[in-house]
Every structure is written in structure tokens, then in C-alpha cells.
Design a protein around this nucleic acid. Structure first.
Ligand SMILES: [Zn+2]
Ligand SMILES: [Zn+2]
Ligand SMILES: [Zn+2]
Ligand SMILES: [Zn+2]
Lengths: 157, 157
DNA sequence: TCACTATCGAAAATGGTTTCCAATTTCAAA
DNA sequence: TTTGAAATTGGAAACCATTTTCGATAGTGA
């Protein structure tokens, strides 16, 4: 099967092999960290977490693997605007852990929230419906992030 | 008046002076470009646009000025995840240039859409209000992106 | 075994942004 | 005017996350 045309369902081993990729030690370690560590990890975060147990996995491999995982739709690459990308396991909009982000532009604190208010749910539903129809898109996912000042940072200065 | 404590209303000259900043030629040129050029400009875009008329305004000054403008709330710093920040005059979510993204995960086509129906704007406003209250956030910006398959890619395979 | 890839890590390169610094400009007070 | 502290400047250098390069290694199927 040619690369890049594998967007189907499945999990780790099968998902990799079926797409022509090999599930190597390093890649497995990276997936392991992503699945266990909470929150949003940078490439370097992952590298540092892996290093004690796998000192021969380089930062380059972390970047490359995250790229592959991202293209397979297994991880989401997030951008909180602080100049370094964060990664988290993707579970899709209907997955149990789907959440949106609230990011403080001052201290970079990130809040994951899952308890969407009615307006937000309706906003998503209506927008997806309208956009899908207008642009002939089959919408499968979304990223929603609000930026602003957190509790503490509002009262600074 | 000490710096950094001026978030009040006003426009260019008064706004600057009142905050202890000086409205210099370079700064005025930058504001001028921002107010005339459509869309989102990178620091370098601005530098290049200004250079013919103001060859003595350096890229560093552009960055510094954008920083000041940003801290005064006069421009929004946007992050589209391509590694370079974009800037636009702050006009709030209702501003003329604000848009969201519709991204095809198969061919990477990106549609900028700005045609929010009033209802969507309203729901977004309500959502921001609700989130702001719930998490004590002062929300100033947002990134909303929908992913899916475009017209052509739906019918492939 | 034998090619053919995929994958690897280290080092170097990249490129947007920030920092540093010495020179210049501004502007209110003297 | 004159003056001096503070603000501002441009260019160079530094910074730093990420990407590219490259030669070596390991898995794969025949
Ligand atoms: Zn969602
Ligand atoms: Zn904060
Ligand atoms: Zn998250
Ligand atoms: Zn918007």
C-alpha cells in the first residue's frame, strides 16, 4: 500500500504496518509517552522523557515520528503561540477526551475544557453544517482555541 | 504616566502620547501600512512595504513597534502555525479581515472563510462570554479551524 | 545470501525573532 | 536657548525550535 493514503481506523501496530511504516522501538516509546503523559508535550518534552530509557533515540527522530503520527491523524499538532509546537494523541471530536483550549497569552497557561456550553455546541453544529454545504466539505474535525489573559495575569501590572 | 498601564480608548497620536510613547515616522508608517493593506501581514511584509518610502526604518523597529502596538491592544498578533506571526489592526472578531479556516486533510487545500452569518458571530460572542466568566479569562482572540475532505477529495478513490 | 528500502542519530543549516549596543532624537524643565 | 534623562533607533549578533543533510544501520522480501 502506498504511503500517505492510509487514513483509516485502527490502532498502533496495525495502523503503522498497514501504512508501510515500521513500528520501531523509538516510535513505540514516543507513542507510549504520549498516551501516558497528560497534557500537551513539546518535541523536547518527549525527548527528555524518553531519554533515560532510550538514550539512543535522538531529537530528530522525535520530530520525524511526530510528523508521521500527525500525517496519520494519530496525534494533533497544536500551536499555542509560544513558538514551540505541542502534541497530543488525537481522539477525534467524538472521542471521550475531546476538548478545546483556553490559552493565556501572558503566562502560557493552558486550560483544557470539555464542558462546552450550549452556545458553543450550537455554534459548532451550525457552522459545520453551513460550511459543509457551502463549500462541499465533509468536516471531520476541528481545533478551537481561545486566547486571552488568565485570572492571575489580568491582575498583574 | 507609567508605561503599560494605558489600555484606554483613543486613536493613534493621542493613544501613543498618552501612554508615554512617541509617535515617530517609522511607527506612523507601520500603522499606515497596517490600516491600508488587507489581510494579515508578517513583520517582513510590513518591512518590505515600508522600505521604498522609508529605507531607514529597520526590521528590528518593525518588530519592536508591532510589540508595542500589540501591548496597547492596537494590533492583533495572529498565529497560523506556519512559523511566522501575522499582524492586523485590532478590530475584534467583527473586523473586516478576521477569518477562520477550512482545511482539507487530504490535499491540504485551505479555504479562508469570512462569511459568518450573524447568528454564528452571536454564538461565538456568547461562548466567549461564558468561558470568560467560568474560567476568569479575558478572551481577546481565537483560532477556529475545521478539518475535513474537500469537494474533490470526497469523490476520489 | 542479496538488493532495496526504511530508518537512524549527529551535525549543520535554516529562518523568524529577540537581544545587545552605541548613536541619535525627543521634549520638558531650567 | 540649553540641557539631560528617557525614548528610540538600526545593524549585528545571538537565540532557538525546527528542518535538512548525510553516511551508517537495520528490516524486508526474494
Ligand atoms: Zn470540539
Ligand atoms: Zn496567565
Ligand atoms: Zn489539550
Ligand atoms: Zn474568528
Amino acid at each position: 500500500m502506498p504511503r500517505g493514503e492510509c487514513q483509516g481506523q485502527g490502532w498502533w501496530h496495525g495502523r503503522f504496518r498497514g501504512c508501510g511504516y515500521r513500528l520501531t522501538i523509538g516510535r513505540e516509546a514516543i507513542l507510549d509517552v504520549l498516551s501516558k503523559a497528560p497534557g500537551h508535550l513539546s518535541a523536547e518534552d518527549i525527548y527528555i522523557k524518553i531519554h533515560p530509557g532510550h538514550p539512543n533515540v535522538g531529537l530528530t527522530t522525535v520530530y520525524r515520528t511526530l510528523d508521521v503520527l500527525s500525517s496519520l491523524g494519530m496525534v494533533s499538532k497544536l500551536d499555542f503561540g509560544d513558538g514551540r509546537a505541542r502534541y497530543e494523541l488525537a481522539e477525534g471530536p467524538k472521542g471521550a477526551h475531546h476538548h478545546h483550549h483556553l490559552v493565556c497569552t501572558d503566562c502560557n497557561k493552558v486550560i483544557d475544557y470539555t464542558d462546552f456550553i450550549d452556545e458553543e455546541v450550537e455554534l459548532l453544529r451550525e457552522t459545520e453544517k453551513g460550511l459543509g454545504k457551502k463549500y462541499n466539505f465533509k468536516i471531520t474535525n476541528h481545533v478551537i482555541q481561545f486566547y486571552g489573559l488568565c485570572d492571575k495575569c489580568i491582575h498583574k501590572k
